[in-house]
């Protein structure tokens, strides 16, 4: 295994400081990252969280219900987690969180003047199956304003946190929706190098769409390197 193939590819990822996204200027490290010696590189890593994921965790349309169904457009989001050789990564923990259909997060700090939905919590998780596939049911998140610049709005997005085979493959990202006009104005999305931006946009999928129930969006996630997920107890 050529370890350089397992590195973070900075031509795919956004830089640590991207002036259009203002808080990166005072929160991104200003010094270059230090290449660690071979000996210090992490070994194989975890299957984590599998036992803790409960059956409703992947269904955000149900896991926050108090007295009725959540409002908004029901969607199915599914995809595969792959390594860069295209091999599926099974038993990988995925955590998601998002705003509700009105563009409001449950988080206490979100003060956007849009209604909370008593029946929508907005967080979930699941573990990929033997083919590396994950699937969530949720409500399409709304856009919401933020303070980065005048009239700034975040495009519709779902936050993803993914583990993969080791600490190096750890990824936190955001999934966007096709055709969103706000993408062209969003400095967080635009901080990603142009050639890799499209990897963050899900595709509408009629085969995934459940008739009479929910629209389907496909979102594959490629984690760095050519590692495979360790077997349980390995």
């Amino acid at each position: 295994m050529n370890s350089s193939e397992n590195k973070r590819d900075w031509e795919s990822h956004p830089p640590l400081i991207a002036p259009g996204y203002k808080s990166t200027i005072y929160r991104g490290p200003s010094q270059p990252l230090i290449e660690v010696p071979e000996l210090m590189k992490p070994g194989t890593g975890p299957i984590f969280g599998m036992e803790s994921v409960s059956p409703l965790d992947h269904d955000l349309t149900k896991n926050g219900i108090k007295n009725g169904e959540p409002l908004g457009e029901r969607i199915v989001v599914s995809g595969r987690v792959l390594n860069q050789n295209g091999q599926p990564l099974k038993n990988t923990l995925i955590e998601v969180w998002q705003a509700n259909a009105a563009g409001r997060y449950v988080h206490k700090r979100d003060q956007h003047h849009a209604p909370l939905d008593p029946n929508f919590f907005g967080a979930g998780r699941c573990v990929t199956n033997d083919k590396g596939v994950f699937k969530f049911y949720t409500i399409k998140p709304g856009a919401y304003p933020w303070g980065n610049h005048p009239n700034a709005w975040r495009p519709n997005h779902i936050h993803f946190s993914v583990f993969g085979p080791n600490i190096g493959t750890r990824l936190v990202t955001q999934m966007y929706f096709p055709g969103d006009p706000l993408l062209d104005h969003d400095p967080i999305y635009l901080a990603v190098p142009e050639k890799s931006r499209e990897r963050l946009i899900s595709t509408f999928d009629l085969d995934l769409t459940e008739e009479g129930f929910a629209l389907g969006y496909q979102f594959d996630i490629v984690l760095r390197g050519n590692h495979s997920t360790p077997f349980e107890n390995e």
């Binding site: 705003a99 955001q174 963050l200 490629v222 984690l223």
Partner: peptide
């Protein structure tokens, strides 16, 4: 490597 890495995005405030 055949496939490009999925880019990172900020964890955000929420």
């Amino acid at each position: 490597n055949k496939l490009g890495q999925t880019p990172s995005q900020t964890i955000g405030p929420y």
